[in-house]
Simulated scan of single mutants.
Amino acid sequence: MKKNKIVRVFVYIALLFTVFLTACSNSGSKDATRTLTDSMDHKVSVPTEPKRVVGSYLEDYLVAVGVKPVVQWSVKNGSSTQKYLQKDLKKVPLIDYSLPYEAVTKAKPDLILMGTNSAVANGKYNQYKKIAPTYVVKNGNNVSWRAQFLDVAKAVNKTDKAKKVLTKYDKKVKSARSELEEAAPNKSVAVLWVTNNSAFIVSDKSASGLLLYGDLKLKEPDLVKQVSKKATADWSAVSLEKLAKLDADYIFLVNSDKDASMFKDPIWQNISAVKNDKLFQYGDDSSWQYKGPIAYTEMIDNVLKDIVK
């Protein structure tokens, strides 16, 4: 009888010890951090498993690796958002692109990701890091979207997932390129954006231009080459008179001004692709103004639908 009592005491002690170890383990994983060096050489102690990420204009990358941010980028009180991501960002509150400190604080982030150095200039970095660990991802004219995507993934501890996303994307690009080479050999394309009765053309080094001329290897019109040499942003203003010389076989138009008077102008109507009914229109809800694996995958589907059919 005494022996059984001793055994029960030992079992009880063993159970308590197991519960103690489990509690310690859970506490450790909950508060675990990693120290990373961001693009501006800040040493940042980031959560191993961040739960509340603010990554304004980096949402495509985050969603692609399975991370749902706590707020989403917007302009003018939500008049402009990344609508192509709304299926994944449903009910995620909006935040102004300027990332006001009060709004960021209200979001209660455990990690803040910044997409540009300028976003944390003039002492802003010190303000943001008071709210939560702040990591500036790789950015700049010489940083590819892939490098930025992988850096975002590293910050949220999803590098393996990101590599799988890129592998899948590259397979899609290879297949699409093959289809386009067969259906539209040596054909040229351009991407225009019309808003407030003004036209803009995309640079060959960014956004959809990088996809069309870089990944898909479609031919770049002379006008796009000329504009891209002087481009300081993704989109550059271009006059109607210059567009008259646009020798693209196909034009993808992001139409933010359906009633623009320029569409009735004879110069516009005589642009080669417009005249030959090779103008494909998309609205602000499309991905054509953005970049990232989700945006580019959607664009590839659009290109194949319109050109290969």
Rank of each mutant, 00 (worst) to 15 (best):
K2R: 15
V9L: 15
L15A: 15
L15I: 15
V19K: 08
A23V: 14
S25H: 13
S27E: 09
S29D: 12
K30E: 10
D38S: 02
S39R: 01
H42A: 03
H42E: 03
V44N: 00
V44C: 01
S45A: 13
P47S: 00
E49H: 13
K51C: 03
K51Y: 05
L58P: 00
P69R: 06
V71K: 08
S74I: 03
G78H: 05
T81A: 04
K87Y: 11
K87L: 11
K91P: 03
K91R: 11
V92L: 08
I95Q: 06
I95N: 04
Y97T: 05
A103R: 07
V104N: 03
T105P: 00
T105D: 02
A107L: 08
K108H: 12
P109K: 00
I112Q: 04
M114W: 00
G115K: 09
T116Q: 13
S118H: 10
A121Y: 09
Y125R: 05
Y125P: 02
N126P: 07
N126T: 13
Q127M: 12
K130S: 13
V137Y: 00
K138Y: 01
K138E: 04
N142R: 09
S144T: 15
R146H: 11
L150G: 00
D151A: 04
A155V: 00
N157I: 04
K158P: 03
T159I: 14
K163Q: 15
K164M: 10
K164G: 10
L166R: 07
L166A: 07
T167M: 10
D170S: 14
K171A: 14
V173R: 12
A176M: 07
A176L: 07
S178V: 08
A184I: 12
K187C: 05
V189Q: 02
A190H: 01
T195H: 13
N196H: 12
N197G: 06
S198I: 10
I201G: 01
V202W: 03
S203E: 06
S206R: 13
S208F: 11
L210S: 15
L211F: 12
L212Q: 06
L212H: 09
Y213K: 07
Y213Q: 08
G214P: 09
D215C: 11
L216C: 12
D222K: 15
D222H: 11
Q226K: 14
V227W: 02
S228H: 05
D234M: 07
S236F: 09
V238Q: 01
V238H: 01
A244H: 09
K245I: 05
L246S: 01
D247W: 06
Y250P: 01
I251K: 00
D257H: 08
D257Q: 06
D257L: 05
D259I: 02
D259F: 04
S261E: 11
M262C: 10
M262V: 14
K264S: 13
N270D: 14
N270T: 10
I271L: 04
N276H: 14
L279H: 02
Q281I: 15
S287I: 11
W288L: 13
Q289A: 14
Q289C: 11
A295T: 14
A295G: 13
Y296M: 14
Y296F: 15
Y296Q: 14
M299H: 06
D301P: 09
N302G: 10
L304V: 13
K305G: 08
I307W: 05
V308P: 10
